[in-house]
Design a protein around this nucleic acid. Structure first.
Length: 195
DNA sequence: CACCCGATTATCT
DNA sequence: GATAATCGGGTGT
């Protein structure tokens, strides 16, 4: 089990968004419950020049993690009821950036996720940014934590997805910069939020 | 302080 | 396809 280190995240945000596909998110709860999920869908938010990014308009209290060290989590609350998970990443010299995790394929801990989400079929357990955070109990307390070392949340390496198995598409749920192809998902995965 | 609206989801027609 | 649920941050008065 090899944890992805800071250097992985210290690269162009769009590249990191693609390379995160196939990697494994590990969530440890109370040092006992272990949940694992394979990343199958991501979106890149390029920072202060990306109108769709929370970092657009500059650094504020809420978006501060996007300007902080790479390889940390940015967890935000939205629509009055959902949390979304990002990993801070950007190339050297770029002021802000992050990758939104939009969908996971459950690997371990299905029973726990079922208890958190009263969903009948497996396919709808983690196929959306707000769904996976609920299934994995990812909320405010995890905002800003370092995901490059063992702890309540970290990411481990896995074989890369071949370029021809990655689909680039427009990002979902945004009104500005809506034509940029900054959403990426694994072709054919039944766990993607939308194809 | 009022108002707007969002990196969403479940549920209904 | 449409909409309610639900709330915090940002903006303007």
């Amino acid at each position: 089990m090899k944890i992805l280190k800071q250097a992985f995240y210290q690269r162009d945000t769009a590249l990191v968004a693609q390379e995160l596909l196939g990697k494994i998110i590990v969530r440890v709860i109370d040092d006992t419950i272990i949940l694992k999920g394979r990343i199958v869908e991501t979106e890149a938010y390029m920072g202060i020049y990306d109108e769709a990014s929370h970092a657009f308009g500059g650094k504020r209290v809420r978006n501060a993690p996007l300007f902080g060290p790479v390889g940390h989590a940015y967890v935000y609350f939205t629509y009055g009821m959902h949390f979304c998970l990002n990993f801070v990443s950007r190339a050297q010299g770029i002021p802000a950036g992050g990758v939104l995790i939009r969908a996971l394929e459950t690997i371990q801990g299905i029973e726990y996720m079922h208890s958190k989400r009263r969903m009948k079929n497996l396919a709808t357990l983690t196929n959306g940014p707000g769904k996976l955070t609920q299934a994995f109990s990812i909320e405010r307390a995890l905002n800003g934590i370092d995901v490059t070392k063992k702890g309540p949340l970290f990411v481990i390496d896995a074989p890369p997805i071949h370029t021809h198995d990655i689909v680039a598409a427009t990002r979902i749920g945004i009104s500005k910069a809506a034509d940029e192809l900054l959403r990426f998902y694994i072709k054919g995965s039944p766990f993607v939020s939308r194809s």
